[in-house]
Nucleic acid binder design. Structure first.
Length: 333
DNA sequence: GTATTCT
DNA sequence: AGAATACAACGCATC
DNA sequence: GATGCG
């Protein structure tokens, strides 16, 4: 390919977008070139939420019709300007007695995440076939202290009104514990309710508080919400997926494309728009609109909430409720 | 999409 | 040389 | 013990 519209500047070199005309989203006819272009232009918005956070990507090198896969580790061939951030995985019981016999092909129990910071990083990943970008709720610089709480609301099929109600319940409950929040249309079935916080609480303490939070709201609204892990137990209720806040768990980044037929976009919006914004309202074709809209989540993140206050209030409420935590006691010592 | 390993 | 394969991760539940 | 599932 010669130079032209399908080239990108990367580390001072013009790099061609390969297979720019390949159709990635068959149902709406969007091509790989359009995906790269989307990520270049949305970059200023997206990077606010993704820079400095360990990044996971979901790639579809042959388009949505082909097989896709997640990728965390940075391949050697990624440009040097994409920072690498090493995280030791499964801090298995201190002083793992059993040393790794001989040398394995697998280096060690570490994951080397990419940290993106520039628009061309996103363009590069898009050219690699990345569709979805997922980030952790804490920053690499302070990995053990999340700066966001994400309440993931997962509705049963065709329960739009219900999941809207659930979002309001989550907003009000967070508010009772001192946190302001912003809804995010995930591009899929549900909403995320996101509360930026000062990273003052370690992720396990916060994870336990969120488990309690989920139990509290589900108990208070038993017809609308459930924390039941098993689908059979959920009935026609919205699943409050408190597991989203597990150590190193990831959530889809705001402004990430989704690997859906319509090429939807995960989009933060204002509470006042809840009745007119469905979880999959925004798509790749709304790029200009998205850039015009402003970002209420980025705005709220400038005045993060008090995580310590939240945790103590949740603890108080939980103790007073007489509720008991169900299975999952991974947060115990 | 790219690198590595298999046949 | 061309085909196959890897590219996250994790407990829990179910079979 | 392998597979399903979020």
């Amino acid at each position: 390919m010669l130079d032209g519209p399908n080239t990108r500047k990367l580390e001072g070199v013009m790099v061609a977008v390969s297979n720019a005309d390949r159709v990635v989203f068959p149902e709406v006819g969007r091509t790989k070139g359009e995906v790269v272009s989307y990520y270049e232009r949305i970059a200023p918005r997206l990077l606010v939420h993704a820079t400095g956070r360990p990044l996971s990507i979901r790639r579809f090198p042959k388009g949505l019709a082909g097989a896709g896969f997640f990728q965390k580790n940075v391949p050697d061939h990624y440009p040097a300007s994409i920072e690498r951030f090493t995280v030791s995985r499964s801090p298995r019981s201190n002083g793992s007695s059993r040393a790794r016999a001989k040398k394995d092909a697998k280096p060690a129990d570490v994951t080397i995440y990419p940290l993106v910071s520039e628009p061309e990083h996103l363009a590069y990943l898009a050219n690699q076939g990345a569709i979805e970008l997922h980030v952790t709720t804490s920053r690499a610089a302070d990995l053990l202290h999340p700066d966001r709480i994400v309440i993931d609301l997962d509705p049963p099929k065709g329960a739009l009104a219900l999941v809207r109600k659930a979002a309001l319940i989550a907003r009000d409950a967070l508010g009772e514990f001192g946190l302001d929040s912003i809804p995010v249309a995930t591009g899929s079935k549900g909403y995320h309710v996101v509360a930026p916080i000062v990273p003052s609480v370690d992720l396990e303490t916060l994870g336990l508080a969120l488990q309690k939070f989920g139990a509290l709201v589900a108990a208070k609204f038993p017809d609308e919400l459930t924390t039941a892990f098993r689908i059979a137990e959920r009935g026609k209720r919205v699943f409050v997926d408190w597991l989203r806040n597990r150590p190193l768990a990831t959530v889809v980044s705001p402004y990430s494309l989704r690997a859906t037929p319509r090429a939807s976009v995960a989009t933060p919006f204002a509470w006042s728009e809840l009745e007119v914004v469905a979880p999959d309202t925004f798509t790749i074709d709304d790029l200009d609109r998205l850039l015009e809209r402003g970002d209420p989540l980025a705005a709220l993140a400038e005045t993060p909430g008090d995580a310590s206050f939240f945790v103590s209030k949740v603890d108080d409420a939980f103790d007073a409720s007489g509720l008991v935590l169900e299975p999952f006691d991974r947060f115990r010592s």
